[in-house]
Write a protein that binds this DNA or RNA. Structure first.
Lengths: 121, 121
DNA sequence: ACAAGTACTTACATATTTGTTCGTGTTACA
DNA sequence: TGTAACACGAACAAATATGTAAGTACTTGT
């Protein structure tokens, strides 16, 4: 009971930011993707520079791996490692919660819209 | 199968950053804390400015609430809302994973330490 | 009388993250 | 012949996150 927060901080480091969690999620669900495939599949269009950097971090943490077919023109694939796949344990839960939260936020919004309309009269 | 990433992004927004997840975690496990109590209980000593701002965001999302006793000197308590408590579903998993990841990272480190020592000879 | 604590806020400074643009050498396709 | 795709990397700019120092008006304890 006294030392209960010791794990959360590193998980936040690994998965946080605007993209890393989403990249991981994509790769878990698609198995293997090429650089630009991955890029296009992420909403909001991540820039190539950012994607390259985030991929490096994930590789360093051992969550994904880079497979270079050494052809010309280049062909490189990214896929989750078995270890990386263990992150699904919390990513799934985060995704579920997010869906509920979105729904909830939407309802709140409609409520305040109504009350604002009432005020304006 | 086609629309599978729709929840994760908002969860990342809500919980990400260096502190919000940890604050939530603390309040879930301690029930209620005063401003400076909470501040001191977070490792690395968060500044009061940052803490105040993060608390506001969490309140806006409906995850925690602020109880002002309106005394002088001031006494204010923060606690999770029932809704905020639902985040425990993924926070617990994230914490577990983090603990494993720390242990793993430590082992990797010892391995590279050894190989570096071998190289240096 | 004086220091310390309460829950912050304001002004300012720095650090980190994220983005934009341009470029590489080669090949496939129109 | 020209264009697009490939997987990035470098230089630079903007946005966001985080931190530091000081101050508020009041009370409690020494």
């Amino acid at each position: 009971m006294k030392e209960d927060g010791i794990g959360l901080d590193v998980t936040l480091e690994v998965v946080c930011g605007k993209w890393k969690g989403l990249i991981l999620w994509k790769l878990i669900h698609e198995n293997h993707l090429r650089f630009n495939e991955l890029r296009r599949s992420l909403d909001g269009n991540i820039s190539s520079r950012i994607l390259a950097r985030e991929l490096k971090k994930l590789i360093q943490d051992g969550l994904i791996e880079r497979i270079d077919y050494e052809t010309v023109p280049p062909r490189v694939e990214y896929r989750v490692t078995p270890y990386g796949r263990t992150t699904a344990s919390f990513l799934e839960k985060m995704n579920e919660w997010g869906i509920h939260h979105k729904r909830r936020a939407y309802q709140q919004e409609s409520l305040t819209d109504v009350s604002n309309q009432l005020k304006e009269q």
